Amino acid sequence: MSRRKSVSTNVLEKLVHQQEQKSKDFQKASEEFLKHCKIKGLSPDTVKFYEKELKGLFRALVELEVPLLDVRTLKLNDIENWVEYMLEMKRAVSSINSRMRAGRTFMNFCLKKSYVDQNPFDGVSQLKKRHTVGATLTKGQLEKLLNTPDITQFVGLRDLAIMLTFAHVGLRLKELCSIKVQDLSFDGKGEVIIQQAKNRYARRVPMTKRLKTVLKAYVEERGVLDNDTLFVSVENASISPRTVQERLKHYGVVSKVENDISVSPHAFRRTFCRLKVEAGVNLFVLQRLTGHSDLEMLQRYVQIYGKDLEQAIEKGFE
């Protein structure tokens, strides 16, 4: 039997169809990836992060004239050129690394879907950056801020409760704004349950005596409302993250603390970590209190603020 000289029409159509199924342009593949992230149950903030970073990556690759009609054509050399281009544009190392993480995750998705044969990001390492800890408030600055609100007024009492919660719980801005009245318990020592945590694991933080006193006074003044969000405006609406930031900035200016350090939710969180490290709190306990997903950041606080260096420096000379 002689060999056939041409592929049959049915076989050819099948091969073309299979190739079309696997071939994806960058934008369509990224849309599928974002849909996959939502179905997977990733937080809206995480989905927004991927969407923002992939859009930025796409724009930069277009500027570099990298063909993106088929993600399979994206190669290691293209990613290396992109990194070099970002550095030439004076982009922050942390920004480049964030975009690289998003791109790597996206291309791993494409790999699983057989849109690519290999991940072009696999041959590129994260850029090295300086490991620093942002500015923190001194105890004196912290007291200045806490003494500034007029607690004879609802707004002043609320703002004191907000700042004290930041200072004594060490939570993030979004976490604070999501606290419900039912997340507080004044039984015994008292505690705050943080449900909307960044790492998606709720955590419990006991109250200090001072925080318990102030929060009880605030909750009593707040009264019973249809809105169960803990911190509310004078119109009884949930307080927005933007308003919280503006109120902190206001007290920073009035107290003149803003002259030395930018007063922000994260400045309070960093201060919480520093004070706990200086007090010798176990690193794993601190991780449970703050909800850090790993110990890397907390270890930086230990390296800078830990008291072991002071205790060790005289040893051997006694």
Rank of each mutant, 00 (worst) to 15 (best):
D78H: 11
S8Y: 10
F109L: 08
T9D: 07
V16P: 06
L42G: 01
S114C: 12
N10L: 15
S23H: 08
L42E: 05
N77D: 12
Y85Q: 02
K14A: 13
L76W: 09
L68W: 06
Y115C: 01
N108R: 15
A60P: 00
E13I: 13
F49E: 03
K52I: 05
D78L: 11
K22E: 09
K55S: 08
D70P: 02
D78T: 03
R91H: 08
S114K: 15
M86W: 01
S8I: 04
W82G: 01
S98T: 06
E65A: 06
N108Q: 13
V71C: 10
R101M: 11
E65L: 01
V62R: 14
E63L: 15
C110R: 05
K90C: 07
F106S: 06
K113Y: 00
K14P: 00
E32Q: 14
K113P: 05
N119M: 11
L69Q: 12
K52C: 09
T9S: 10
S98R: 13
L12E: 07
A92S: 11
Q18S: 13
L15P: 02
S43R: 10
T46G: 12
L69Y: 10
K90S: 07
L111V: 11
N119S: 07
A29C: 12
H36R: 13
H17C: 09
G41A: 13
Q27C: 03
E63T: 08
K48H: 10
L87N: 05
L42K: 12
S98C: 12
V83F: 01
D117V: 09
K112R: 14
E32H: 09
F109K: 01
F109T: 00
L57R: 02
A60I: 04
V16S: 02
Y50F: 09
G41K: 04
D117M: 11
L57N: 07
V83M: 12
L57G: 06
D45M: 12
Q19N: 06
I96S: 03
G56N: 15
Y115L: 05
K28T: 14
E31K: 04
V83R: 06
I79W: 04
L54P: 00
R72M: 01
L57W: 04
G41T: 03
Y115N: 04
S8R: 08
Y115T: 01
K90G: 03
F109Y: 15
P44C: 14
E13D: 11
L64Y: 06
C37T: 09
L15K: 13
E80K: 14
N10P: 00
V62H: 06
L12G: 00
F109N: 02
D45S: 10
S98D: 05
N81Q: 13
I39H: 04
A102G: 14
V93C: 03
R91E: 04
C37K: 11
E53Y: 05
N119E: 04
E53Q: 14
S30T: 15
H36M: 14
T105M: 13
K22F: 05
K40Y: 15
V47M: 06
F33N: 04
P67T: 04
F106G: 00
L54D: 00
V66F: 07
L74K: 06
K48T: 15
D117H: 11
L54I: 07
K14N: 10
E80R: 15
V66K: 06
T9Q: 13
E13H: 15
D117Y: 10
T46R: 14
R91M: 09
R59F: 11
S23V: 08
Q18H: 15
E65V: 03
